[in-house]
Design a protein around this nucleic acid. Structure first.
Length: 310
RNA sequence: GCCCAGGUAGCUCAGUCGGUAGAGCAGGGGACUGAAAAUCCCCGUGUCAGCAGUUCGAUUCUGUUCCUGGGCA
């Protein structure tokens, strides 16, 4: 029988201390860390994404970080392929893979796969997007009601992003997205996973977030964003529309006064952390720990590694 | 000490010609199948500062106490 590869997963909201926690386990179990973060993948975006620094990378090697240019397309499907390869490479060197990150969708995709092997059709998406601009989101949703009532029921008319995707899938594959989703159902278990979710009192986390934003500023975050613009990476890029980067763009373009830019950057980071909690809370078999409970985590990892699948 | 203006949601305030109240911001909950740090949905009970009085009924009127800000001494 084929045994699924054992991996450790560490997730939690931004700023809670995933990196530190993961490094601790990596050192304790001869492991290496594979990031699961949709923004830390980008080169030149270091301060604002809170990438692990040189010291931290020395303490434990990190993978899937800092390897994509800010204007290159990336998505969950590509993430799976890279992560699978990284896991296989670690296993071949007898290293324990520790997946650490805050992008819930990437983690879910890695653990359960996605319903189809092809990437979204950019041309079709763009055409639908233009149609939304001229006819409105409601018109697209009305069409979805006709063509895929099942999906239309689950997607809110205002969520143009998902309405467009559903129409694109229908057009490109000839099958409604709802039937793809139904037959896939995230039922596949691609790895044997021990899942840690880090949590702490909300007000405490928010204080840490506010402090971390101030720290980013003192580390030269504004210059980092200026540097990106000088390299030709515009504010319209998806990567540059992320938290912090979009706020600095607005400040540099004169759309926001400094204090307001900082205030909004902190607020939006807090809201992001809240959304991450919502995402991770709904995941099954999550072991919730405080970031300081590394001893307990070690114990659980030991037990996990000593049991074989039967 | 005196005079004036206030004390209403976590914050800034609106309002009730007497029938127990609502905006913005902050915040909370949720969704999520190849753009996910994105995208989208839902959520406002709070001794209307305390006490007493008038009234069928007071957060609203009256008195008084306390607190805050400003002015005069």
């Amino acid at each position: 029988m084929d045994m699924k590869q054992k991996i450790i997963l560490i997730c939690g909201p931004t700023g809670i201390g995933k990196t530190h926690f993961a490094i601790h386990l990596a050192q304790a179990f001869d492991g290496e860390i594979i990031g699961a973060d949709s923004m830390q993948i980008y080169k030149y975006m270091d301060i604002g994404t809170a990438k692990p620094d040189a010291d931290e990378c020395r303490m434990a090697p990190h993978h899937l970080i800092d390897f994509v240019k800010p204007d290159q397309a990336f998505d969950a499907g590509r993430y799976i392929r890279h992560a699978d390869a990284a896991i296989a490479a670690l296993v071949s060197r007898a290293k324990l893979p520790l997946i650490a990150g805050g992008t819930g969708f990437y983690l879910k995709a890695l653990l359960h796969g996605l319903f189809r092997e092809r990437t979204a059709d950019r041309l079709v998406l763009d055409r639908l997007e233009r149609e939304r601009e001229s006819k409105g989101a409601k018109a697209l949703h009305d069409r979805l009601i006709q063509m895929d009532p099942e999906a239309a029921k689950r997607i809110h008319p205002n969520d143009a992003f998902r309405v467009i995707r559903a129409l694109e899938v229908l057009e490109v594959t000839g099958k409604p997205i709802s039937s793809h989703q139904q037959s896939h159902g995230f039922s596949e278990e691609r790895y044997d996973t021990l899942k840690f979710g880090l949590h702490m009192e909300r007000s405490l986390l928010y204080k840490r977030i506010d402090l971390r934003v101030d720290l980013m500023i003192s580390q030269g975050f504004v210059d980092e964003v200026k540097g990106l613009l000088e390299r030709g990476y515009s504010c319209e890029l998806k990567s540059m529309q992320s938290i912090g980067y979009r706020h600095m763009c607005d400040y540099l373009k004169g759309n926001l006064p400094w204090d307001e830019a900082i205030r909004l950057m902190k607020r939006d980071t807090r809201r992001y952390a809240k959304r991450q909690f919502t995402w991770f809370r709904s995941q099954k078999e999550m072991i919730w720990l405080e970031p300081s409970e590394t001893k307990k985590a070690e114990q659980l990892v030991s037990e996990f590694l000593s049991t074989s699948i039967s």
